[in-house]
Design a protein around this nucleic acid. Structure first.
Length: 204
DNA sequence: CGTCCGATGAACT
DNA sequence: GTTCATCGGACGT
């Protein structure tokens, strides 16, 4: 984990797989009506436009939903999945390139109470923030934050540097989850997670 | 442990 | 009408 893993120039790299790995250990923070919640990113997936069939921007497709993906590196791409879950991505790549990194799981770090309340749970457990639909729910993240700049101070959702480096040897790779329709692209080892961390989604 | 399925909306055929 | 970057509850082993 590089200390500058989240700066603008790093996120502008064309190597979205490197960035997905690099985001492991960085922090994500939401500030919803003064309730500031912070977590450590423990699981990510890379989506590489335009050739990756699993990407919403496959073939450089443009719809109202995908338009955000063509924005600047460091932009939030949040969309509604299965009509229920708000899934959160970091837009990456050179200007006009619609790469994105899906944040799949987070380790709850500070201000657990709002997370428990939003998830209707009464005690801390990994399922509070493991899984792409679960952690966004805990952090109060919805599509209303689609398009915001995650690198700017004062925003309701922010990407922050790691507090402690993650040992590179403990970062594991696997195929991505839930994209079996994507043919050969479904086999790419573009999912990254911290080995043995309980704060990681269960494969389905 | 496992498989099945409903919820619910954007985008596609 | 069907599919989809999901989740949790129901029910069988």
């Amino acid at each position: 984990m590089l200390e500058n893993g989240i700066d603008k120039s790093t996120l502008e790299s064309d190597d979205v797989v490197f960035i997905a790995r690099n985001l492991i250990g960085c922090r994500i923070q939401s500030d919803i009506e003064g309730e500031v919640c912070t977590g450590i990113i423990t699981e990510t997936e890379a989506y590489k436009a335009p050739e990756d069939k699993a990407s919403h921007a496959y073939g450089n497709r443009r719809t109202q939903r995908t338009e955000t993906m063509y924005g600047e590196a460091g932009t939030a791409y949040v969309y509604l999945c299965y009509g229920i879950h708000h899934l959160f991505n970091v837009v990456t790549g050179p200007p006009g390139t619609a790469h994105a990194v899906l944040i799949r799981s987070v380790q709850a770090l500070s201000n657990i109470r709002p997370m428990l309340r939003r998830r209707k749970q009464d005690k801390l457990s990994p399922q509070l923030t493991a899984g792409p639909g679960n952690w966004t729910s805990a952090f109060g993240i919805t599509t209303q934050f689609n398009g915001i700049n995650l690198l700017a101070p004062g925003k309701p959702v922010r990407l922050l540097p790691a507090l402690e480096p993650i040992p590179p040897a403990s970062i594991r790779a696997s195929k991505r989850i839930g994209i079996d329709y994507a043919g050969e692209w479904a086999h790419k080892p573009w999912r990254f997670f911290i080995e043995k961390s309980p704060w990681v989604s269960r494969s389905r």
